[in-house]
Design a protein around this nucleic acid. Structure first.
Lengths: 130, 130
DNA sequence: CATTGCCTTCGCGCGGACGTCAACGTTTAG
DNA sequence: CTAAACGTTGACGTCCGCGCGAAGGCAATG
């Protein structure tokens, strides 16, 4: 299989595949004429990269998974390094979520304060009846 | 007050102040020689921008607050448009947090599955006795 | 011969908030 | 008078990751 076919089957552009190769993922054997030659396993490899990308992994972060696959393991996450990759990403996400949550709370506090200070008088959230 | 003094007092660079002006925030009067001239209210204006920036507001999103201040209101968030700005940002943050949470859960599920499939056997989270 | 596919390398684009430099005018202190 | 310090505009560089586009040339196939 050459680059065009792999690109079509994987649903990415040939540019993307060459880019992956330039980044050290997805190395390709070469035919005598210099054409890149791929096997079916490379399809799974690209699929693994895309999946992780969808999770917000950077290209570099997909490396352990890719190397795990290339080492012959059944899944990209069949290796300890990949699991660590998961764990790091989860920790990263938790940290980010926490920061965003904190900002969210601060902005909400500002909103509440500003609403209370409005010259038109505070807009009550609950109906006051007497 | 000229640009250097305002920059120092506000804790930003002169480049930043000129940039704000170019973006339509922070318009400056000009002296006869063409120098930008600022008043004390501009200091509060810059402070308002920085505060919002810290909350993750883009420059454009600070516009209602800035115009509110320039309209003579006591705070940048003394205007309805500013409150809407707060609300939009909160909604934005909620959406983002939700997405990240979803991704986090998916990655966690992958991690759990991969751990269970490890050739070394699943690493139990709880001791099994008996 | 034409078409299609592939090869390489170089450089561009995006988006936002600036940094940095150039080349020049102004003010101020010695 | 001169030099430093400050001001002006304009244009380009940076960071970040993930690519895209195009030029110029070789390979395979009809």
């Amino acid at each position: 299989m050459r680059i065009g076919e792999l690109a079509e089957r994987a649903g990415v552009s040939t540019r993307t595949l060459r880019y992956y190769e330039s980044r050290g993922l997805l190395p390709a054997r070469r035919a005598v004429n210099g054409y890149r030659v791929y096997g079916d396993e490379d399809l799974r490899l690209v699929a693994q990269i895309r999946t992780l990308q969808d999770f917000g992994f950077g290209l570099d972060e997909t490396r352990p998974f890719v190397e795990c696959l290339r080492a012959g393991h059944p899944h990209g996450d069949s290796c300890p390094a990949s699991l660590d990759g998961y764990r790091r990403k989860i920790a990263e996400l938790d940290a980010l979520i926490g920061q965003l949550q904190s900002v969210r709370d601060q902005v909400t506090a500002e909103l509440v304060r500003a609403e209370a200070e409005l010259p038109g008088g505070p807009a009550p959230r609950c109906e006051m009846r007497g």
